[in-house]
Nucleic acid binder design. Structure first.
Length: 149
DNA sequence: TAGGCCATCTGGTCCT
DNA sequence: AGGACCAGATGGCCTA
C-alpha cells in the first residue's frame, strides 16, 4: 500500500486562512466577502473529504488488484462498474441455469468476493466457455495486475 | 525529469 | 443571500 501524503491539507499549507491572511493581515480584518470565501473554501474541503470517504468505502468492497497499491479514483470507478456488471450477469445466468447448477453458482459468487478475487488466476474451468465467461464478466483489468500463481 | 495523482483554491451556476 | 456542486488552475508528492 502506498501512503500518499496530501500535498496541502487544510491545516498545514495552502489553506484559505493562510492565503487570505496574507492579503488582509489578520483574521480580525477579514471583510464580509473574505469571510464568505473562507467559509466556502471550508465547505468545499469538507465536501471533497466526504467524497474521498465514499471512494475509500467503495475501494473496500471492490476487488483490489494486489495489496501494495490502492486503486486511483478513476480505477475504483471502473472496477466498481465491472464488479456490478459481473454480479448482475451472475444473477441473470443463475436464473437461466436453475437449481441443478447451485454448485456452479456458489463458485461464481466465491470468485467475485473481493478477498477471493485472485482466484481468477488459479481457478480451473470445466469448459472454455466458462473461462471466457468469467473473464468477460470483468472487462476492466488493472494494468499493474500481478496475480500470484 | 516527466507524467500521474491528488488536495486545495477559486469563480461560476443552480437551487432553496 | 447562502449553500451545494462543478470545473479549471495550481502546486506538491511519488514513481518509472
Amino acid at each position: 500500500m502506498v501512503s500518499r501524503q496530501p500535498s496541502c491539507t487544510g491545516s498545514d499549507s495552502g489553506s484559505e486562512s493562510e492565503s487570505l491572511d496574507s492579503k488582509s493581515g489578520s483574521p480580525e480584518k477579514h471583510d464580509g466577502s473574505t469571510r464568505r470565501r473562507m467559509a466556502a473554501n471550508a465547505r468545499e474541503r469538507k465536501r471533497m473529504q466526504g467524497l474521498n470517504t465514499a471512494f475509500d468505502r467503495l475501494r473496500k468492497v471492490v476487488p483490489q488488484w494486489g495489496q501494495d497499491k490502492q486503486l486511483s479514483k478513476y480505477e475504483t470507478l471502473q472496477m466498481a462498474l465491472s464488479y456490478i456488471m459481473a454480479l448482475s450477469r451472475i444473477l441473470t445466468d443463475a436464473q437461466k441455469r436453475k437449481a441443478p447448477h447451485r454448485q456452479w453458482l456458489d463458485l461464481q459468487f466465491d470468485c467475485v468476493q473481493p478477498e477471493n478475487y485472485q482466484c481468477f488466476s488459479t481457478i480451473s474451468y470445466s469448459s472454455p466457455d466458462e473461462h471466457e465467461y468469467m473473464h468477460s464478466s470483468f472487462p476492466y483489468q488493472y494494468d499493474g495486475l500481478q496475480v500470484p500463481t
